[in-house]
Amino acid sequence: MSDVILSVDNLAVSFRSDNGMVRAVRGVSFDLKRGETVAIVGESGSGKSVTIKSIMGILTKNAVIDSGTITYDGMDLLKLSEKEYHHIRGAKIGLIFQDPLSALNPLMKIGHQITEALRLNGPISKEEARQRAVELMDSVGIPDAQRRFDQYPFQFSGGMRQRVVIAIALARDPEILICDEPTTALDVTVQAKILDLIGEIKAKRNLSIIFITHDLGVVASIADRINVMYAGKIVETGTTEEIFFDPRHPYTQALLASMPDLETSEKLASIPGVPPNMIYPPKGDAFAARNPNALKIDFEREPPFFKISDTHYAATWTLHPYAPKIEMPGVLKERIERMRRNHA
């Protein structure tokens, strides 16, 4: 177990609201191994952002951590004081934000926003800080960094700003990089470049990455393992191949079936219904209400994790030995066949 660098165990987080407690995360567990990229996939409101905010210790004040531990370097991050957290945030775990347009302080020079992080590592001279910041900007692919150093965020494009955010996250040389939908707010062409950059810096700095996204297409190219989240729980976990070529949970299947691609002329499949209201979390499998093939037991009892392989688990009753065999939808079957062929 020594290569596990961060371990989230049975994390449950709720938010106080006027209408009652919102159960945003309900028992999430996963491990991050050194040098690995773990993706958390799920739709809006599935609890993926709340999970990583708990890791960073930046939950809003109305959040309540119901249970769980987040172990890093022998410490439970959830028990750290705000002051102790300053040695973790930025220094050990860096975060890349979803929206680079609002993540930078609009009134502060780009260079200053980077050196500010650099200087937290220890006292360095102004020239040295500048030197290091310019190197950092170079390494994340910002051209003409010397001149760009003195510019303001509004003089940067979205993609360039995301590179700045990445530079800030890397400034203190963290071991873990958390990417919270880093490409969602960007153009598709820029997305690809940013993903390449993340892959590149990961290899260069031997980073471990937690990658949050709702876009399976993005995940395919970057992740080693995938956790699929729905309604505050991980419903399926496996390697990227296992999730893409052998999805078992009906939600994972529905997600894959609703991915747009260029090769079919069929109408894009969509998942019917809406996610459950997490003030009143459903009793059984949270996805049952939207699953046309749901079994009776899906509405009554929460499914445990069924083991498919050593790395592949899914929480769905369809994997129970007594469950009726449910055929995968034809569209999805075809698609998986195609993906397999393309992959090989």
């Binding site: 960073m56 930046i58 300053h86 040695h87 945030r89 930025g90 220094a91 860096g94 975060l95 934000f97 929206d99 609002s102 993540a103 930078l104 302080n105 609009p106 500010e116 992080a117 937290l120 955010v165 800030i168 996250a169 400034a171 203190r172």
Partner: peptide, 10 residues
């Protein structure tokens, strides 16, 4: 958001 970023910097 940039306040969050400022805090995640450390």
């Amino acid at each position: 958001e940039f306040m969050l970023l400022a805090r995640t910097k450390g």
